[in-house]
């Protein structure tokens, strides 16, 4: 029994790094994602194309490959041009990689949220003399935000799990902690059981919360 608790304890000691990366990345993802979403909805075709390509590139490649490119590939590229650069902190690189990766998914979430608001809402706001920006800010975005909140919660959950691949670039988060301990103690079963349990202890409450938000939304839809 003690060995299982040890496994859990080891995995748990990486939680701060995992959460730090996930939370920062989602915040970056939301900020960047909003810009990308608006870019993809731009009336200018070249702008739309640029942002569509951005989203396609990020969604079309695995996160682990993106991490390798940014963490190892990018410094090597700079070095080949004689610029000396390396990441001092793998966590910082991870936040950047995950944030950029997340922005592509968040952009799609925001875009569909904005488009899910009934067209009549914009018409009503404009017919009342609000300009486009006021209508977006006071009428469309608040409603879109309610629509996308559950999806953002799901994005947070999936990004949290995805951060496990960062162990490949030597970020000492939950999974990496367990790997290090397992390779040294050979307690593979307690080690990785502990890893799984730590992720579940976050994802299960979060997904319950998302389900609750979805139910609440369905109710308010019915009473519209």
């Amino acid at each position: 029994m003690g060995i299982y608790l040890k496994g859990l304890q080891i995995a748990y000691s990486g939680i701060a790094v995992t959460l730090q990366i996930t939370i920062s990345a989602v915040l970056i993802g939301v900020a960047l994602g909003l810009i990308v979403a608006l870019g993809k909805m731009s009336s200018l075709k070249p702008v739309r194309i640029v942002f569509s390509v951005y989203v396609e590139l990020l969604r079309g490649t695995p996160l682990v490959v993106q991490a390798l490119i940014i963490y190892l590939g990018f410094p090597a590229l700079l070095q080949s041009y004689g610029i000396s650069f390396r990441w001092d902190d793998a966590v910082l690189a991870s936040i950047l990689v995950c944030g950029i990766n997340s922005s592509a998914y968040v952009a799609e979430i925001i875009r569909s949220g904005l488009q899910a608001v009934d067209k009549g809402q914009m018409e009503a706001a404009r017919s009342l003399g609000m300009n486009h920006i006021q209508a977006m800010r006071f009428i469309i975005v608040p409603q879109a935000f309610r629509i996308i909140l559950p999806a953002l919660g799901n994005e947070f959950i999936s990004l949290l799990k995805e951060t496990a691949v960062l162990s490949i670039i030597a970020v000492v988060e939950v999974t990496r902690k367990s790997m290090l301990w397992a390779s040294q103690s050979f307690e593979f079963w307690p080690a990785y059981l502990g890893t799984a349990f730590v992720y579940l202890s976050i994802t299960i409450p979060l997904s319950r919360l998302v389900a609750y938000m979805e139910r609440r939304m369905a109710q308010s839809d019915r009473s519209k």
Partner: peptide
């Protein structure tokens, strides 16, 4: 002033 068939009140 404009009044719509579907009201278009702001639900939030």
């Amino acid at each position: 002033g404009m009044v719509f068939q579907n009201f278009n009140l702001f639900p939030h």
